[in-house]
Simulated scan of single mutants.
Amino acid sequence: MKFPRTLLTAFSAAAMLALSGCAGGASTEASAGPDNGDKKDLTIAVFNGWDEGIAASELWKAVLEEKGYNVALEYAAPAPVYSGLSTGDYDVTLDTWLPVTHKSYIEKYGSDMEDLGAWNDEAKLTIAVNKDAPVDSLEELAANSGAFGGRLVGIEPGAGLTEATTNKVIPEYGLEDMDYLTSSTPAMLSELKAATAAGENIAVTLWRPHWAYDAFPLKDLKDPKGALGAAESIHSFASKSFTQDFPTLAGWLQNFAMDPEKLFSLENAMFNGAKADDYGPAVTQWISENRDYVDGLTQG
């Protein structure tokens, strides 16, 4: 049987429309976000140069993308991050140190943000030495400075740790005769690596959490005078509308916890071997080796 050309044209148009509709439906389904009440698009603000925050953010990015979220990491200094959170330009940041380091930002912007709680409570500035060094306390360092070549290896001159070492640690523990070297964090780590390989003593300014504790045999020198301050907690802070926009994720982040050893191992995998700015493969490998922990992040 032959059909009129007009009928065939109408049928073809209808068929094309149906196929188009099916394709559109498939595309919509493929691009759908998490089926848990959360928005799909999420922006995590990350502090430049803060390894623990970079590690936590990259981990959550990988975890959430498995769940169907579209996650963007945006790097900035703390001031614009907190300003952006207060205006809703960013959704969340995972690296707020309290009660001291970021106190001024919380005082300024806190009423326009939400504290999702602490995920690590052992953040601390330190002076670290090789584990078999002949001293255990900063009180012993001056009398044994020769064992370290009379050197204390620091990081960037403008860092808060450098300021605390210069203004507090050195005068309070009588370390004025030691040569305090400041340059950069990579330079300090290079010295630490070389000394470890040579079996030599070394004293460096460091902080917890840091991947160096997983990569090298280190111990922190006791600080009985509290020159470096007490331990702080690392919090996740979010925009004011975060819980409304991401009710499920808000619960996950409120329950998020990561102990120093696990964080050290993630940082070590990312920063001590992976290509800079291409952490994806290292994070994927770490997730595969810590699947039970990772799966637990999105339960409950």
Results as ranks from 00 to 15, higher is better:
213 Y>T: 06
212 A>L: 03
136 D>V: 02
254 Q>C: 06
148 F>M: 12
206 L>H: 11
210 H>C: 04
160 G>R: 09
251 G>N: 08
156 E>L: 04
152 L>H: 01
171 P>K: 12
228 L>W: 05
147 A>Y: 01
250 A>D: 01
271 F>M: 05
206 L>P: 00
217 P>R: 07
234 I>A: 07
169 V>F: 11
270 M>E: 07
242 F>M: 01
213 Y>I: 06
169 V>R: 04
152 L>T: 00
195 A>W: 08
140 E>H: 10
182 T>Y: 10
174 G>D: 12
145 S>T: 11
234 I>D: 00
198 A>Q: 03
185 T>L: 14
231 A>Y: 04
165 T>H: 09
208 R>S: 14
200 E>F: 04
233 S>M: 04
204 V>N: 10
205 T>L: 11
164 A>M: 14
180 Y>R: 05
226 G>N: 10
164 A>Y: 11
176 E>G: 15
171 P>E: 13
141 L>E: 02
190 S>I: 06
218 L>H: 03
157 P>T: 03
190 S>K: 15
168 K>D: 13
166 T>F: 06
170 I>Q: 12
262 K>A: 09
153 V>Y: 09
270 M>C: 11
237 F>V: 09
148 F>H: 06
179 D>S: 13
197 A>V: 09
167 N>Y: 12
141 L>W: 03
144 N>E: 12
266 L>R: 05
153 V>D: 03
156 E>Q: 10
184 S>M: 05
262 K>V: 09
154 G>T: 03
232 E>K: 06
165 T>G: 13
202 I>R: 09
252 W>K: 08
164 A>H: 12
216 F>E: 11
240 K>F: 03
183 S>T: 15
188 M>A: 14
231 A>G: 11
243 T>S: 15
146 G>L: 10
198 A>S: 10
177 D>E: 15
259 D>P: 07
254 Q>D: 10
227 A>E: 08
167 N>H: 11
199 G>P: 04
173 Y>H: 09
174 G>P: 06
164 A>G: 05
267 E>A: 02
266 L>V: 09
209 P>Q: 11
156 E>G: 00
257 A>W: 06
220 D>C: 10
266 L>C: 12
238 A>N: 02
232 E>W: 04
262 K>S: 11
259 D>S: 11
149 G>M: 05
244 Q>G: 13
271 F>N: 02
151 R>F: 02
194 A>Q: 13
184 S>P: 13
182 T>S: 12
140 E>W: 07
261 E>V: 03
225 K>T: 05
155 I>T: 08
233 S>C: 05
256 F>N: 01
226 G>D: 04
242 F>Y: 01
188 M>G: 10
187 A>T: 09
222 K>Q: 09
179 D>W: 07
269 A>S: 14
199 G>K: 07
159 A>G: 08
261 E>G: 03
208 R>H: 14
245 D>V: 00
208 R>Q: 14
161 L>R: 13
182 T>L: 13
219 K>L: 06
217 P>S: 10
189 L>M: 13
151 R>K: 15
174 G>E: 08
205 T>Q: 14
176 E>D: 15
239 S>F: 00
149 G>S: 10
268 N>S: 15
216 F>S: 11
242 F>G: 05
137 S>F: 00
138 L>T: 00
147 A>C: 05
265 S>M: 10
234 I>Y: 04
147 A>F: 00
144 N>T: 09
194 A>M: 11
179 D>K: 12
135 V>Q: 00
171 P>W: 14
213 Y>V: 02
154 G>Y: 01
152 L>F: 02
218 L>Y: 06
